[in-house]
Design a protein around this nucleic acid. Structure first.
Length: 323
DNA sequence: AATTCGCCCTGTCGGC
DNA sequence: TGCCGACAGGGCGAAT
């Protein structure tokens, strides 16, 4: 599922290919992917528009055009790829300058290809989404930050100043599990299921821990971990767990480096304990029962203050998880 | 007001 | 081999 690192990778790779080019025509093949307008109006609004800039906000991809902004959300299985002019499809294969090849690169246009942007000279931008959870919409001018779906987004994790954010935006007294908060796009924009689990593991926090039971130190450690796992995801060009592909159609490599996501029942890479799979905030969740000790409630913490009742045997803090 | 739940959708996988 | 239910889950709107 494309989260911040996947979307960032797409934006960084796609931008140089399309910025400065003109959309000759737009072919929207599945009308329900489009919000707020008809397919016909959409096509005529895009026709002839220059692509000035490609950028990201949370998990949204934004193409700033001459007179409007094209916003794309990839949902769970969305792919945004760039098809060069010399790529010609042929019965499921792709003909390149060197001959007929298996489509290991850009996926050929098929029934899951919902939007085609035809650029000058035969170049194309393809939006493909088998599960059709993605969304496409247009915003006037450069006003995409004002669109209801984007205006509610929280801060960008990568440029987060943690001390200020802790004071200003970290809820106090919330009874939600911390994982639910991480997935909340109005809290931080761009964190999804993969990187939430990875950040919780890295910071040694149990996903069910209530937000109000996290101390300042743990909150700070968690936010650092979020930044770390997202940056690592970008360095590895994203996580191709299932459908995600880079704009050239190839896979990212971060899936090889995941510590917990998708590894339920396998041994923890840090301590060897069998990783547990559970359901938190209606999302499949994997954590290490040893490295991510269960939350202690306020009352349990108070009980610990009783003289003589020392902490657990292991001197190692739960947070001391190797990278 | 805060939080959870149900729903959208389709390819893949395990069980029989 | 083929059928079938379970599962994956981002985000919105309804329900609690």
């Amino acid at each position: 599922m494309p989260e911040l690192p996947e979307v960032e990778t797409i934006v960084r790779m796609l931008g140089p290919h399309v910025e400065g080019k003109r959309i000759e025509s737009a072919d929207l093949r599945l009308g329900r992917m489009l919000l707020g307008m008809t397919t016909v109006n959409f096509a005529s609004a895009l026709k002839g528009q220059a692509i000035d800039r490609v950028l990201r906000r949370g998990k949204y991809i934004i193409l700033e055009l001459g007179g409007c902004s094209l916003v794309i959300h990839l949902g769970m299985t969305g792919q945004l790829t760039f098809s060069p002019a010399d790529y010609v499809e042929n019965a499921g294969f792709i003909r390149t300058v060197t001959g007929l090849e298996k489509p290991k690169g850009v996926h050929p246009v098929d029934k899951h290809t919902h939007l085609i942007l035809n650029l000058a000279g035969g170049e194309r931008v393809l939006f493909r989404d088998p599960r059709t959870f993605g969304k496409i919409f247009l915003v006037p001018g450069r006003d995409w930050p004002l669109h209801p779906r984007l205006s509610i987004l929280g801060e960008e994790p990568l440029t987060l100043r943690i001390p200020a954010f802790l004071k200003r935006s970290f809820p106090t007294g919330s009874a939600r599990p911390i994982k639910a908060l991480l997935l909340d796009q109005s809290f931080l924009a761009g964190v999804g299921n993969i990187y939430a689990d990875e950040a919780l593991f890295r910071s040694g926090i149990h996903p069910m821990t209530l937000v109000r039971d996290l101390g300042d130190e743990a909150r700070s450690r968690l936010l650092e971990a979020v930044k770390d796992v997202l940056r690592k995801g970008i360095r590895n060009s994203g996580t191709s767990f299932s459908d995600y592909r880079k704009p050239d159609g190839t896979e990212g490599s971060n899936q090889e480096r995941l510590k917990v996501y998708g590894r339920g029942g396998e041994p923890c890479r840090a301590c060897g304990t069998t990783l547990e799979k559970s359901l938190v905030a209606q999302r499949g969740t994997v954590h290490c029962p040893k490295c991510q000790a269960r939350a202690r409630t306020r009352t349990a913490k108070q009980a610990e203050r009783i003289p003589g009742a020392g902490p657990r045997k292991s001197g190692k803090r739960a947070g001391a998880v190797p990278a």
